[in-house]
Design a protein around this nucleic acid. Structure first.
Lengths: 168, 168
DNA sequence: GTAATTGCAAAGGATTTGCAACAGT
DNA sequence: ACTGTTGCAAATCCTTTGCAATTAC
């Protein structure tokens, strides 16, 4: 099967291997390659994009294996999955940036920018307590038009309520 | 086809009809019925649930028509669609509650509670400006365990990072 | 050796779409 | 009458799953 032709470069890979061993799961070359692609990118990758990068590296790994590996990576806490309303999930590793950040998403080109506001976790805890919830996590996404799309002349369409004369 | 056996009760229906006329779209009994179900519930309904309610009222309206009507209602600004990670969308009308509220979602029973924090829109505008974005909308969801599920003994499982000794 | 993974193809679930019959204007 | 809708089924998209062959331990 796939031999390790491509140099594994990520310094985080050993964490994944350690997790697999701890869980009594086999460390396979496919799992290594998939994890290496995700750890090696700062972007918010889709399964499609991960598959394309693997193909570019000369690896031929089935989508099912990618999905199954992503599931383990998320369970291991090494990768976070996001749903920005594209109809599919995106994945990002947790290293080298604020651990609990939020996302700014361009509604036109789908670019994702990360940001951090300290008050958000405060709000999460306050709101949860007020309603008797035990808070686990939150998601905050701000959607808008990025500077580049503004520059290329993309405009926003107005909504329907305005047409009904109800204000926004 | 479907005759209007069921009493149309929602006081907001005329807004939808007005929107349809303004747009030059036909006002059909199906659109009326679908809108009436959504306007008549304070919950966050799935297409499945809307279909069930219509069936209960003796209406036999195809799923495709429900999807198509929801699209119009959202475009009209009378209904908002949400994705709480259930694998399908949920819809809620915009009347009778804070127009730009956030959601608290129980990760166990999937109950949804609304809340409002004034600082969120301030944050939306500040963050967008800092990054040169034109803000359009945001979504903030807090996930946790609701009081009822806590009382029935549901517990939270720990994550993988903790097992790797990396803290959270 | 044994148990788990892999890869393919088929299944799955939510949503969309093509099209003939039909209703709104 | 003409245009747009409806309903059904088929198609689509992302994701999951069944199973025989293969690999990790």
């Amino acid at each position: 099967m796939a031999t390790m032709e491509h140099e594994v470069t990520s310094p985080y890979l050993h964490l994944f291997r350690r997790y697999l061993r701890q869980q009594g799961l086999p460390v396979t070359s496919q799992r290594d390659m998939v994890a290496d692609v995700v750890f090696g990118s700062a972007a918010h990758l889709s399964v499609e994009e991960i598959e394309a990068e693997l193909k570019k590296r000369g690896e031929r790994i089935g989508k099912a294996t990618i999905y199954r590996t992503m599931e383990i990576l998320v369970r291991a806490g090494l990768v976070e999955d996001h749903d920005f309303g594209d109809g599919f999930k995106r994945y990002e590793h947790v290293f080298g940036h604020q651990p609990l950040h939020e996302h700014l998403v361009c509604t036109h080109c789908r670019k994702v920018v990360e940001f951090k506001r300290r008050e958000i976790s405060r709000i999460q805890h306050e709101v949860a307590r007020e309603h008797g919830f035990i808070p686990q996590r939150h998601r905050l996404e701000i959607y808008g038009l990025c500077p580049e799309c503004q520059a290329s002349g993309v405009t926003l369409s107005r909504n329907g309520l305005a047409c009904l004369g109800l204000g926004s």
